[in-house]
Simulated scan of single mutants.
Amino acid sequence: MTSTITTRATEIVLPAAVEPSGLEVRTRDLPAPSAGQVVLRMDATGISFAEQQMRRGKYYDQPPFPFVPGYDVVGTVTATGPGVDTALTGRRFAAVTKTGGWASHLLIDAADLVPVPDGLDAAAAETVVVNGITAWQMLHRIAEVRSGGTVVVLGANGGVGSTLVQLARHAGITVIGTASPRHHAYVRELGATPVDYRDPDMYGRIREAAPDGVDAVFDHVGGAGLVRSWRLLRRGGTLVSYGTAATKDEEGNSQLPVLKLFARIQAWNALPNGKSAHFYNFWAGLRHRDDFRRRLNEDLTQVLRLLAGGVLTPQIAARIPLADAASALALAESRTVAGKVILVPGE
């Protein structure tokens, strides 16, 4: 039997390009799910770099203001629409939403749900939804680094970075990870060799650790340093760029840094040196939606299994109630934490 009941939802709204304190809390009636949809009660959602860029109006293809941010969510199905198996009700799932996840309840297509293993903590699962898919696909689908290889992970203490380090170590790959000195012990615990990202000769330090070059560099920073990341590669190596953090505070067109990056990558790939460069786009292949969903489901299922099996350790920086999203966003942007800041329902 499908649901015709409306649900009262609390949502965090990004009204314009504002400071974290400018986030707004609103409540509204969520309509009953339509054909193919479910109502998902949020058990955990998170704060990633995407939302940090969105609140500045700097994310590459964000919607116009105002909107509810929230790139991914873990939750429990409370109602099903026509054509959806009612047995989903009461079960926990993860989903990638791009926006809308910062809400107590949300409508979502049942086809976008990925089952969360029984007994897995919602906040733990949330740490590896977008972060886990991103790390898995960059390592195994793009760079295809084999056991015995060596890689560099910039920002090894971050949400994607820490997951990437763990996946690489599980695959028998040596990792050099950049982070501030206060996070070096943490990076070592993950299994990587830490390098101070503030060291003026950071790339020289990496070269000392891998004098013959590396098989892959995972770079979320972009900007001028991307050229030096490229130079770290040995022949046959792969540069995977997945962000432009270096230009996050620059004024002007938010698309320009990405377009410049695309042009540089295209030029590098034309060189006859055996190296390759890629810009990782989470939404690549979305035009073939069924294939996109199948690949996302497959990769996230692999990561969740590793998490449930203890191979991955969830990197939770803090758990903060949804209604206090402003302080949670400020904490995530402070660069003082390791792992992911998680929003939970609260009281």
Rank of each mutant, 00 (worst) to 15 (best):
T4C: 00
T7I: 12
R8H: 00
A9V: 14
P20M: 02
P20C: 02
E24Y: 07
V25C: 03
D29F: 03
A32D: 01
S34Q: 14
S34A: 14
S34P: 09
G36N: 12
F49A: 07
Q53L: 15
M54V: 03
G57S: 11
D61L: 13
D61H: 14
P63K: 09
P66S: 05
F67T: 07
P69G: 00
V73R: 04
V74T: 05
T78W: 11
T78C: 11
A79Y: 09
G83P: 11
T97P: 06
T97H: 10
T97I: 05
T99P: 03
G100L: 06
S104V: 02
H105C: 11
D112F: 05
P115E: 12
V116M: 02
D121Y: 08
T127C: 02
V128G: 10
V130H: 05
Q137C: 05
V145N: 04
S147C: 13
V153W: 00
N157C: 01
V160I: 04
T163E: 00
V165H: 01
Q166S: 07
A168C: 13
G172N: 05
V175K: 01
I176Y: 07
I176L: 05
S180E: 02
R182D: 14
H183D: 14
H183E: 07
A185I: 08
A185G: 12
A192D: 06
T193D: 04
Y197F: 14
R198I: 10
D201Q: 15
Y203Q: 03
G204S: 09
G204I: 01
D212S: 13
V217G: 05
D219P: 02
D219Y: 06
H220A: 15
A224W: 03
V227F: 04
V227P: 02
R228Q: 11
R231E: 15
L232H: 06
G236A: 08
T244V: 14
A246F: 07
K248C: 10
E250Q: 14
E251R: 09
S254H: 14
L256H: 11
K260Y: 07
F262A: 13
Q266R: 13
A267T: 09
L271F: 08
P272C: 10
G274M: 04
A277Y: 00
A277V: 04
G285N: 06
L286V: 13
L286H: 12
R287A: 15
R289T: 13
D290H: 06
F292C: 03
R293Y: 11
R294V: 14
E298W: 07
D299P: 01
L306I: 02
A308Q: 15
G309P: 05
I316W: 11
I316E: 02
A318M: 08
R319Q: 08
R319M: 00
R319A: 00
I320G: 00
L322F: 07
D324T: 03
D324Q: 09
A325W: 13
A326K: 08
S327G: 09
L331I: 14
R335G: 06
T336P: 01
V337N: 00
A338L: 09
G346P: 12
